[in-house]
Simulated assay, not measured.
Amino acid sequence: MEQKRLGDIATYINGYAFKPEDRGSTGLPIIRIQDLTGNAYDLGFYDGKYPEKIEINDGDVLISWSASLGVYIWNRGKGLLNQHIFKVVFDKCEVNKQYFVFAVKYKLKEMELKTHGATMKHIVKKDFDNTVIPFPTVEKQADIAYILSKIESIVEFRKQELQQLDDLIKARFVEMFGDMYLNSKGWPEAKLESMADVVSGITKGRKTKAEDLTEVPYMAVSNVKDGYIDWTTVKTIEATQQEIEQYRLLADDVLMTEGGDPDKVGRGAIIKEPLENCIHQNHIFRVRLDESMILPEFFAEYLQHQRSKRYFLGCAKQTTGIASINMTQLRALPVLMPPLSKQEEFVLFKAQVNKSKVAVQKALDETQLLFDSLMQEYFG
């Protein structure tokens, strides 16, 4: 099959380096790609004269070549292109636009290995132009793009299904227990320390004279997300038997973070099936609940609602955009306590929804695997 350099397929127009004084409150938005999903934010508005080539419209293909590498078909209206983004002009040969997007998306990992820059990684134009993609006939490109687009749309649909199921759980929680922030149903309230054992974890890099150390897995801040445990990367640490006994995690322990982004401080999740002898880092609090008073599933959902989030935000210490809470503040967290029977009803409902989530997640994983294998077949 014929191969073509990206530089021989199209012209890549870089955006303009707008100065701070160029940015106002009227005119066209100055666009910057924010993350790998293609989310964009504007850097203010510009109502002066500008080179026509940096204007973007729906249907334009954009490539973010610095910080968050990505390729996107723009669909958010007229704007102006800030620096670090290429607008693709297909003026050198006939090519299917969607095929081009899929091909570049696949090649981004290869390009990332060639990125330059100490603080902000970026692609050098020469390396970008020299990247080669398979280049079948335009008819074959259209066929490939059609297949990949269909599978990609199924992947997105499955993701939306999962989000809708999560939203259903949250809606049921509010329906059963009311507005948590206002305590609209007048539930009794108590401090967390009255219904849970709250402890910090093991300090990484601590000095120990013990010689009999065992390497065990441990939960770090990166593993604890808002509502779930991320098992992508689990690190290990050497610990004494006493430390393993002291910090060992049990099923249904709730892990909560000490710090992070202000809107995420105090985030927490239940650990359902901890790895053998798994312990936790000192920047994570382990909350072991008295289940005769409060159930882990109820408490974990409670942490995602405004009463707890505003409490943590109000008492957290903030420095340079990072917020943190201490043990005393966590133990003093005010927790609403509906009757245990109501909590159990919610837990049963959530379990039923989670069965559906498992089925949807399985379908998503299978579809994603198919998509990835076809991308490898077509562009690898």
Rank of each mutant, 00 (worst) to 15 (best):
V88Q: 13
V95H: 01
H116T: 15
M111T: 06
T131S: 13
G117K: 14
G44L: 07
K126L: 00
K87D: 10
D42M: 02
S149N: 05
G70F: 03
A40M: 11
W74C: 04
R76V: 02
L43T: 04
Y41V: 13
D58H: 15
W74L: 05
D58I: 15
I56T: 05
K92S: 01
F135L: 00
V104F: 14
F86Q: 09
K109Y: 03
S68L: 01
K126F: 01
Y50W: 08
K125R: 11
Q34V: 02
D143I: 04
L62I: 08
L108I: 03
K109E: 04
K140A: 12
V104L: 15
G48Q: 12
L43V: 04
I85Q: 12
G48K: 13
L69S: 08
G59V: 15
R32L: 01
Y99R: 09
K109F: 02
M111C: 06
Y72N: 03
A67T: 06
I73E: 13
V101F: 08
V89H: 11
R32H: 01
R32Y: 01
F90Y: 09
E52W: 12
D143V: 03
K126M: 00
S64R: 06
F86N: 10
S64P: 12
D35R: 01
E94W: 04
I123V: 12
Q98H: 15
V104W: 10
C93Q: 09
V104K: 12
Y146E: 14
S149V: 02
Q83H: 01
E112L: 05
N130R: 12
I33W: 01
E112P: 08
V89L: 13
I144G: 10
K87E: 10
K49H: 07
Q98R: 15
L80Y: 11
L43S: 06
I54Q: 08
S64W: 06
Q141Y: 06
D127E: 04
E52T: 15
G77S: 12
H84N: 12
I73N: 08
N57S: 04
L148S: 07
I63M: 13
F100T: 09
L62M: 05
